[in-house]
Design a protein around this nucleic acid. Sequence first.
DNA 1: GCTATATTTGCAACATAATTGCATTAACAT
DNA 2: ATGTTAATGCAATTATGTTGCAAATATAGC
Lengths: 145, 145
Amino acid sequence: MENKTARFEKLLVKNGLKRTAQRLQVLEILSGRDSATSQPYLEQVMGKNADRVTLYRVLQAFEEKGIIHKVLDQQGTANYAICSDGCSAHEHHDEHVHFNCDNCHKIYCLDTVKIPALKVPAGFKVEHLNLIATGLCASCSDKIN
Amino acid sequence: MENKTARFEKLLVKNGLKRTAQRLQVLEILSGRDSATSQPYLEQVMGKNADRVTLYRVLQAFEEKGIIHKVLDQQGTANYAICSDGCSAHEHHDEHVHFNCDNCHKIYCLDTVKIPALKVPAGFKVEHLNLIATGLCASCSDKIN
DNA sequence: GCTATATTTGCAACATAATTGCATTAACAT
DNA sequence: ATGTTAATGCAATTATGTTGCAAATATAGC
Ligand SMILES: [Mn+2]
Ligand SMILES: [Mn+2]
Ligand SMILES: [Zn+2]
Ligand SMILES: [Zn+2]
C-alpha cells in the first residue's frame, strides 16, 4: 500500500482543503479503526493537538466534502466513519446499514448490506434512508457465548 | 369519543403512575399532534407549568412504561410519539418506519410501513431495527409543487 | 374528610455537546 | 519572499441532559 499520509494529503487537496496537521490527524485516527468513531473519543485522542472547535469544524468540512459520514447512535451521539469511494460534496452514497452493538457500543458500517427500498404512503417523497440495527456484534456475541 | 382526559387518567393509573397535572399535559400535547413532538417544543409549550427536569422525568417514565416512544431525528434531537396499542413496560412494538421531513422537520410515524428483515454478516445478532427515511412529507411536497 | 406514606416535583448545581464572533496564525499561490 | 485566504484558537454562549436533595402532593387507609 502507498504511503497513507500522502494519500490523505491528496484527498485534502482534491477537495480544496488545506493540508493541516489537525485534518491529517483526524484522518489517521478514523482510518485506523474498524468501526465508526465518536466525537467524544476523537476529542479525547486529539487532546491538545486541536481545539474542540477546530475538531468540530474539521468534521463538518469533511462531511460536506463527502470524505466522512456521520452516524448517530441510539443515544444521539455523533460517530464518524470514512466514506467508501464514490461520495462527494454533491452526494453521499453511504446508504448501507449501520450496526450499533448494545455491548461494546461500537458502530459498524455494514457496507455489504444495502437498505431495501420502501413503499411509503402517497405523497411522501423519500430522499434518503437511514437504518440502524442494534444487537450484538460478531465479536461480542463470540465472547458472551 | 370518550372524554380524553379521563382516558389519560386511566392510562396513568394502569401503569402505576400518579395522575399529575404535568403528566396529563404532556399526554394532551402529544395526542393533539399528527407527528412526533420534540423535547424542545414540549419544553417551550409547557412553559412554567413544569420544570425542565420534571419534563425529562415524565418522558422517561412514559417511555419505560411503553406509553410513548422516542425517535431521534437526523440532528439527534429527541422526539416523542404516543405508542399505538400493544406497547408495555416489557416491550415496545414500534418497529415502524419514521419519516423526517427535510422541509418542515416533522417526524411522522408511518405505522403501516414495517421495517423489512435484514441479512447481516455472520456473527451479528440483530435485536432491533430503526429506520428513518428523510425527504418531503405529503404536505410539504404538495406546497412545493 | 383527615392523616400517613410514598411518589413526584422544583431547584440548584453540574456535565457534556455544539455554535458563534473575532483576533491570530499558517498554508500556499504567485 | 510576500500577500491573500483559509484555518485555528480562545472566550463566551446556548442547548441538552443528569443528579441530589428538600418541599410539595397524590392517594390509600382509616
Ligand atoms: Mn457507514
Ligand atoms: Mn413511531
Ligand atoms: Zn460489540
Ligand atoms: Zn414536511
